[in-house]
């Protein structure tokens, strides 16, 4: 039975987890490695670590953190945040990450996807796409939704697949942070456009929201969320038990 994936996303700044975390049995909530291990125990299917460090120093810390994570967890993980070159991606994959997630750099230079595919294979490349709906068109954005590009979501998704991405992580900037559910209809449409797996991100507020995007309504392959997991609003084992009751295939 092929399972839908549940993916907690951790924001990392200067080697530390930034979002407040509500794990009662954790000694150091700022320690990404300890948090990652906890998520593994709770049957997270994959983890995503996004580096939001603004400094060169912070970036270096991230590479050594990735090495430490790779030593300590036994499930696949993706790293992203500010990857702009083959060298950036290569350093992170060599440090032990299973996949890299690229975003702004890909919109500026789609060739980067092709180069990474040649070097590391599609399975190690996730392209993250942020978009918002403007006058009825889904426009690709960068810099946390503040910069709107000329690209249109669906044609960009198709191009990303052609270039050799292994997976698309689509975040609706209109839904992100609202906790009112994922952009289900957009995910459903993406299913018609691309054949590679699509990870849903942005808008999770409840178990029902996650069930919706993974079921017929959204048809996404995986659901990513940050705050609802970090703040303990939804525990992954509870979530998975509920999804199973709704006949959504999950790893338990």
């Amino acid at each position: 039975m092929y399972a839908k994936r549940i993916i907690p996303c951790l924001d990392i700044k200067d080697g530390k987890t930034v979002k407040g975390v509500n794990f009662t049995n954790l000694q150091n909530v700022g320690d990404p490695v300890e948090l990652a291990r906890q998520y593994c125990k709770e049957m997270a299917d994959e983890l995503v670590f996004l580096d939001i460090s603004a400094t060169q120093e912070g970036r270096k810390t991230f590479v050594s953190l990735v090495e430490k994570i790779a030593k300590n967890i036994n499930i696949p993980f993706t790293v992203g945040g500010g990857i702009s070159s083959v060298e950036d991606a290569s350093a992170l994959l060599k440090a032990g990450a299973d996949k890299v997630s690229i975003n702004s750099a890909a919109t500026k230079n789609p060739k980067l996807i092709e180069e990474l595919k040649e070097l590391f294979g599609s399975q190690s490349i996730t392209v993250a796409i942020d978009a918002k709906e403007i006058n009825g068109t889904w426009r690709v954005t960068t810099h946390g939704g503040t910069q709107i590009t000329e690209r249109e979501l669906f044609s960009w998704a198709a191009e990303v697949e052609r270039c050799g991405a292994g997976e698309i992580l689509f975040t609706s900037m209109d839904h992100d942070g609202t906790k009112r559910g994922y952009a289900c209809s957009v995910y459903k449409k993406l299913l018609e456009i691309v054949k590679i797996p699509v990870i849903a991100s942005g808008g999770a507020g409840s178990i029902t929201d996650i069930a919706d995007v993974l079921s017929e309504k959204g048809c996404a392959d995986a659901a990513l969320a940050a705050s609802i997991f970090h703040y303990g609003e939804i525990r992954i084992p509870d979530l998975k038990r509920e999804l199973k009751k709704m006949n959504i295939p999950v790893r338990l």
Binding site: M1, Y2, A3, R5, D45, S122, Q123, G166, E167, K195, I196, P197, D221, A222, R251
Partner: peptide
């Protein structure tokens, strides 16, 4: 089915 087969399976 989506190819490659990526993810958790029994």
């Amino acid at each position: 089915k989506k190819i490659p087969h990526i993810g958790w399976n029994t």
